[in-house]
């Protein structure tokens, strides 16, 4: 592991407290400090969560990619755990992002969901990382599981890169991509752009920054908790081995 156990315990404790405090402050900032948006009203506030979680999702998948590369270079359990935890957390955050976006979309677009390119590609990303757990579940041997998971995470990151690039390229050329839902899709694209370019005040920008920092710290706290669990599990396993060898008569 990356740290000794006492060190890990300390980091986890600090991060837990920090995350909790930041989350409380963030909620206060989002609801009382940030100004009410003109066209959307209070509903717009959900976007601070939406963007914050989306940011963490991207970071988490990137960390998983790096962990995957390191695992292939040197297969150590810590890299596998880092990758697994990161995908796990990333998927949860991606789900929050989508749910928050959907809640916003209902009043904004008059529908919970649209098959616009961005939403479609987000769904695909979600499916890609959900399948990661199916792959892990289907491999029994730990070494092979780690190896396959690492390869899969590397391949899936290409999907993420392509999804991001596609959204830009496809929208730049033409915001309407799917024939049937042309009008609503256009609305979706504009709705998103309106927000992105519409941080009219400093206070909105600061709130967004605060949210992003908060969710990043929550991610780190979660990650370290997860890593610590793995650490304890490894400890237990190695103790088990020692007990078993002792019982077998030590001569082995």
């Amino acid at each position: 592991m990356f740290f000794t156990l006492p060190r890990m315990n300390k980091i986890v404790r600090v991060l837990n407290i920090l995350a909790l405090v930041l989350l409380l402050i963030n909620i206060i900032v989002v609801f009382f400090y940030a100004p009410t948006e003109r066209t959307m009203g209070n509903v717009q506030r959900i976007f601070y969560f939406h963007v914050g979680t989306a940011w963490v999702g991207a970071i988490a998948f990137f960390v998983a990619l790096v962990a995957g590369i390191f695992y292939l270079r040197k297969p150590q359990v810590k890299w596998d755990t880092l990758g697994l935890s990161s995908v796990e957390i990333g998927l949860v955050f991606l789900t929050i992002t989508t749910a928050a976006g959907s809640v916003w979309g209902r009043p904004a677009w008059n529908t919970w969901w649209l098959w616009s390119p961005r939403l479609t590609l987000i769904t695909i990303a979600w499916l890609v990382y959900a399948a990661y757990f199916m792959l892990r579940g289907a491999v029994e041997d730990a070494e092979k599981r780690g190896r396959f998971a690492a390869i899969y995470v590397i391949i899936s990151f290409i999907t993420i890169i392509m999804a991001y690039v596609s959204i830009r390229v496809l929208r730049d050329i033409h915001p309407v991509v799917f024939g049937g839902t042309a009008d609503t899709a256009q609305g979706a694209a504009e709705g998103l752009q309106e927000f992105e370019g519409g941080l009219e005040s400093m206070r909105m920008g600061l709130t967004l920054l605060m949210s992003t920092i908060t969710f990043t710290v929550i991610y780190l706290a979660w990650l370290f908790n997860r890593m610590r669990l793995q650490y304890l599990k490894d400890e237990v396993d190695s103790l088990k081995i020692r007990v078993v060898t002792r019982l077998q008569g030590g001569g082995t």
Partner: peptide, 10 residues
């Protein structure tokens, strides 16, 4: 070793 299982031990 296969995981925790020693298959060949020296």
């Amino acid at each position: 070793n296969y995981g925790l299982n020693p298959v060949l031990r020296g």
